[in-house]
Design a protein around this nucleic acid. Sequence first.
DNA 1: AAATATAATGATGGGTTTTGAGGTGTCCTG
DNA 2: CAGGACACCTCAAAACCCATCATTATATTT
Lengths: 343, 343
Amino acid sequence: MGMDGDQPVADRPQQADVAARAGVSLATVDRVLNRRKGVKERTRQRVLEAARELGFLSEREEAALGGERPLNIVVLLPAGSNPYLRLLGERLRARLDSAGPAGPVLRCFFIESFSAQALAEALRRNAAWADGIAFFAIEHPVVREAAAEVVAAGTRLVTIVSDLGSVPGIAHVGLDNRAVGRTAGLLIGRLSGGRAGAVALVAGSRHYRAHSEREAGFLSIQEELFPQLRIHGMREGHDDAAENYRHTLALLEQVPDLVGIYNVGGSSGGITRALREQDRQDVIFVGHGLTPDTRRAVLEGTMDAIFDQDPDMLISRAIEGLSGPAPVQRPLKLDIYFSENLP
Amino acid sequence: MGMDGDQPVADRPQQADVAARAGVSLATVDRVLNRRKGVKERTRQRVLEAARELGFLSEREEAALGGERPLNIVVLLPAGSNPYLRLLGERLRARLDSAGPAGPVLRCFFIESFSAQALAEALRRNAAWADGIAFFAIEHPVVREAAAEVVAAGTRLVTIVSDLGSVPGIAHVGLDNRAVGRTAGLLIGRLSGGRAGAVALVAGSRHYRAHSEREAGFLSIQEELFPQLRIHGMREGHDDAAENYRHTLALLEQVPDLVGIYNVGGSSGGITRALREQDRQDVIFVGHGLTPDTRRAVLEGTMDAIFDQDPDMLISRAIEGLSGPAPVQRPLKLDIYFSENLP
DNA sequence: AAATATAATGATGGGTTTTGAGGTGTCCTG
DNA sequence: CAGGACACCTCAAAACCCATCATTATATTT
């Protein structure tokens, strides 16, 4: 007779067993297993752990459900009209939309620009609930302190575009800005074809380490390779188009032998406007950030080259840096656009 | 005695064993093995896993039942000494190593270069077992026919670096080569600083559409913007360093007012060697492919710019093209390297 | 601190799917 | 031809999905 049923086939665990083990109700187990919302992350993990221990889930499913809970990631960018940062914000949003529920939850806040206080405060405020924060750093003790605190409290940080320097445990995602500055210098020097004259630097703020590093690189190569060009000291335009416009008009008036301009920061629109209005297409102009206005400027010849860092790459690498353990963080690739290779 | 087979008589495993191992009834095993519906995916996986562990299934069956087997992808590259292609091969291997068993199986074969026959044959040969083939195309009717055949037979194809043109159903992963040629022309024109003289073109072969497209772009912009420069017709160096070396020596001798060289193809090493030996660092030289030799040439000033397409990106996009349905295939980004922004 | 909103969990039940147990018939093998 | 392995089927029980609502934490406001 029924010999075969003697092994009560090591009963597979049921959701009820998982529920018991996790100390929750069936309803909650169901919510977790079916990815319904309304479960606190802690309980979610408990349930998943219980399920794993009971062998209720195969490894595959476990990875799909539990492995990586979606991280909460915050991105802090300077407010203001800087078109590149606007674009960055847009790409962030695009990424959020396109990524399924698997990807991390991205949130983006704009912080009063050039304000170390505001940035420090934002860091502290968001550290409470975010797993990781990517931020455009302002080099200032207040920010450094806030960052160190936040890192100590267990929130991961990466700086993007502009670095913070000398705070351990913070990775950086961005260009090698000294090399970038040197490349800009090289390009302007070479394109000027041996002419003697002045080269002007425009920046957003020296408080952005990215800006001062680019400046340093630019100066070093000018001195090294192009003695016929003299540097007309750096002006801070605070990444504001109107301010950059005024600066440029003044420049064009005061410096008759102006050969080139390198805008270390953003909002090149103001500069191109001045150049266009004064009909000074002969001035070599290199700036940062591939945006509609710089595109147009390059196409019409007002601008000679755009230096860019791919926003999507920037975002990917930042997320990567905030997710896993910070691996080899080689600098991003500098993209150089002329009128002929615009994407 | 012992009727019930308590001695593990190394019998072939039975469905009952699978059932026991999976903690499931015979009925369910039956459903899974015979692809009947009404089995939850989770249980399906359990059963399959148990069956696999017991060696109950042959590989064939397992693949058929288990769902998505990893894709078999073949990459065909031209043989020869071209350093960029060598690098590409290396990156392929690196990718193969790094990717887990989940990723597609990549295999890379080097085909006699510039031989349409050999390429066509390789396409047909590999189509028999590969799911997708990525290949560096030679524009030739023989290749086109083979490609069309292979596509019709259900193997997916993408061309990399050099396109095949006008064969439906084949995606292309590579640069916008006309724009690349124009950019090279722009750069050489601008860097020459208004000097008059000759500009020479060197290519691997006009049978590579990539090469002739770059040539066309280069010519168009020279004519358009730099009338003071005359083009010293294209030479085919077959991407061979020795041949390029000889060509360049001849060039330097025959063309006293040589201002620049654009190497549309690979193996720039031969050209830099000639320039170095003749001490002609004044000649502006732009070439393709970021490799150790071009790196060195740029650093020492023999070469002015390297145009590159990131091999990893190329591979990723090719695999992507062979895996899913071909989506928006915008061209790859052109990377431009000067002495100061080498990675 | 009380009041109030919001989110998280528990409880429950109806409808659906999945599963186990068993029956039948076929094919193959000793 | 007996017997094992298995394909294919049915049916009822069990497990599960899913929506709803009550209840309890947790946060926010007043």
